[in-house]
């Protein structure tokens, strides 16, 4: 850091990141403060710690069956994400590493499908789930989410950075194609998997529209549905909602904390 240009650059880097971090975190700070305040105080825009935290938590726990709701959400998001990662990364790998004219066409079609708004597909999908007798089940939420075109697309793009020499070397070593995928590709691409896990888990965890339509009984409701229901009514209790919002944010944050170590590893040059 003796070089003044480098010093300036570093300072600019910190200023940029600090502003970005402040702007990003500020609403969360507000949310946490909100959880300690009463609802009328939040509506009045009070930005100071209040004394209603335990009151809000207490009310939250009486209104929501937390263990049950948490289990539903974790089960759906956990199983759904794991299946998506496997199925979508296989497809992304397949589309990129084994190119053919037909599969390119199929892939372009997939991209177009991605652009159809879900609202247009919801009613037919609901009829289909009803015919399969899957209404109000975990499967009804998980099954349509597994083959995420978005994640297939992501893995395909990330695979462009996967060195073909690695595959060629593995082939010479006599590994079968599926072995190459599981034993070479997956470990090498772990920062890609880490990022994808965060994204998929978050999407499943926050999924709202479809679970709302397809889940019918309170014992099946997910965290997101339960919190949205708190906001129902003429006088929603924002203190309780803020408690719910914090609890709903935690699991994704934990996943993020755990997986960002993978990025650090990458930075240390572990990926070669």
């Amino acid at each position: 850091m003796s070089n003044p240009v480098a010093f300036l650059g570093r300072t600019a880097q910190y200023v940029l990141l600090s502003i970005a971090a402040f702007v990003s975190v500020f609403p969360f700070f507000w949310m946490v403060l909100g959880a300690t305040n009463t609802s009328p105080d939040i509506i009045r825009g009070r930005i100071a710690p209040g004394t209603a935290l335990f009151d809000n938590i207490g009310k939250f726990l009486t209104q929501i069956d937390l263990p049950r709701v948490l289990f539903n959400s974790l089960f759906i998001a956990g199983v759904g994400s794991a299946l998506t990662l496997i199925v979508a990364s296989m497809a992304g790998y397949g589309f990129e590493m084994f190119r053919s004219r037909v599969r390119e066409r199929v892939f372009s079609l997939l991209l177009l499908m991605l652009s159809i708004p879900f609202a247009a597909l919801m009613i037919p999908l609901f009829i289909m789930m009803a015919n399969l007798k899957l209404i109000n089940t975990y499967q009804a939420i998980i099954l349509p989410s597994i083959a995420s075109i978005f994640i297939i697309f992501y893995f395909r793009q990330a695979t462009k950075a996967f060195p073909h020499e690695l595959r060629d070397a593995a082939r010479i070593d006599g590994l079968k194609e599926w072995q190459i995928f599981f034993y070479v590709y997956m470990p090498v691409m772990r920062s890609t998997y880490a990022a994808a896990t965060i994204i998929v888990f978050m999407a499943n965890w926050n999924n709202y529209l479809w679970p709302l339509i397809v889940l019918q009984t309170n014992d099946m409701f997910t965290m997101t549905l339960a919190i949205a229901a708190l906001n129902a009514g003429y006088t929603p209790d924002f203190g309780v909602i803020m408690v719910g919002a914090i609890i709903a944010t935690l699991p994704t944050l934990v996943i993020f904390f755990l997986l960002q170590r993978r990025f650090v590893e990458g930075m240390l040059g572990a990926v070669k």
Binding site: I42, L230, F238, L253
Partner: peptide, 28 residues
């Protein structure tokens, strides 16, 4: 680095209900 990374990522994990309440009140 970890702090900045987490902080900047944080907004997309927020629950939509909190997001709307917060933004509406910030821009009131």
């Amino acid at each position: 680095r970890g702090f900045f990374r987490t902080a900047i990522f944080l907004p997309c994990v927020t629950s939509l209900v909190a997001y709307s309440v917060i933004f509406k009140s910030m821009f009131a």
